[in-house]
Design a protein around this nucleic acid. Structure first.
Lengths: 236, 236
DNA sequence: CGGACGTTTCGGCGCCGGCCGAACCGTCCG
DNA sequence: CGGACGGTTCGGCCGGCGCCGAAACGTCCG
């Protein structure tokens, strides 16, 4: 007891950052990959600004968030893709039991927009994410049966579509991310991020309001069908 | 504030299970994939049996552990591979800063045995795990550059070596698991588990004492060289 | 049957951490 | 310059949780 396992200590300390409902709500909100101000998070989580300030400070100190100060604002975002992945993994573990039906119509429609298409940190999720992942797989661009990897044809497809895949650090090119709403894996990793970025840059999708939900535009439907054979009906 | 996000609640509740040093120590110990009795865990964690009993009950109630009662013993193990993976992910996030040097000779030699070879829930890790993963990759049996997947040749190799790969559930055939000591990915998933099971069954490796560390036998060195070209020096 | 032993329950203690409001600090802008 | 506003710090309150030891329970075994 005098000599505790330092790994256990560190693990407990890390987990403690997630182990508070207010902080968890903030982290899940930040899973949209964008920077939020402290007061936005306070409103979102329903706590006083002072309370939230302390939470954010702990998350930053713990390496889960990075901050950028601009004038009187404190912008904060998830530190990196590793943190986002960890958060996804925890959320995925938890969501099976989230069988509760939404109570209000507003919550229900917001939920269905999220289920239709959303960002998951820096890649696409929801039926949109699944449709793209399935289309890539059906065309032999992505291997799912024996793991999760791009094929030769997949590499060529990204190149021909003008979507650059730059390897940086140890982040894998392709990675599976379990979809909360679909209960199936969708494409994450460098390729997932590049595809999502391209989709938003070229207007295939636009964000709905200030939340994580995205909507596929008419141009996007056309492009997804032309390039991947994604039927518009799969996005409804 | 009256209507809290149920997902945030569930996430915080799950994380809270990891957010205690004693529970974390138990979970890390259970990462050897075997069942421990409550009193073994109490001794390992350095707390009273009564204290540990409550911890174990919480972990079982939270779905992280499953229990088997045999007579007056309560055996407990990680609930499934998903839990083990989550634990690995959390541990991997934490270990980079674990730069502390071991203090005692005993801890140091135990540490070096663990670094040489160990099990990580149900697959091989440490230099042994890395050596096997590298050998598979070098021989074109495993694809790492574009994700983490078995190749056609890889499937054939497992079949010819008499190592069955039965897909059950959604567990991927091949998956990357970040090695704590080597800071590089090693093979996990169905293939990793099958390989580890085969290695222990056929006597390629034996467990050292009652811990997670494993030792490669002379027969194991021969087999690993013959089948995969693994040099014995990579295992030292 | 009776003692040993693994486990659990219970009461009680102490600490940590989340919460708020009030005061304060900096920045922005009219 | 002065008010508005975002953010932070501080003190104080409260609840939850981890810890223990004592007592009870169940099983095993001589």
């Amino acid at each position: 007891m005098t000599t505790r396992d330092p790994q256990a200590t560190a693990l407990a300390r890390l987990a403690a950052l997630f182990a508070d409902e207010t902080r968890a709500a903030c982290l899940l909100a930040l899973l949209d990959g964008r920077a939020w101000t402290a007061s936005e998070l306070a409103r979102h989580a329903g706590v006083a600004a002072s309370t939230l300030s302390e939470h954010v400070s702990r998350l930053v100190a713990g390496g889960l968030l990075t901050e950028e100060r601009q004038g009187r604002h404190r912008y904060v975002r998830l530190a990196d893709a590793r943190v986002a992945q960890l958060l996804e993994d925890l959320a995925a573990q938890v969501t099976p039991e989230r069988a509760e039906r939404p109570r209000t119509l507003r919550a229900s429609s917001a939920g269905s927009a999220m289920a239709r298409g959303r960002t998951c940190y820096d890649h696409l999720a929801g039926r949109l994410g699944i449709a793209v992942t399935d289309a890539l797989t059906a065309r032999g661009l992505l291997e799912q049966e024996r793991g999760f990897a791009l094929t030769d044809a997949g590499l060529a497809w990204f190149a021909s579509a003008g979507i650059g895949l730059e390897r940086r650090g140890r982040r894998p090119l392709a990675r599976a991310c379990l979809d909360w709403t679909e209960r199936r894996p969708h494409l994450a990793g460098v390729a997932g991020a590049a595809l999502c970025r391209h989709a938003l840059d070229t207007g295939w999708c636009v964000r709905i309001g200030s939340e994580r939900a995205v909507r596929v535009t008419a141009a996007g439907e056309r492009a997804l069908f032309d390039l991947l054979g994604v039927e518009a009906v799969a996005l409804r």
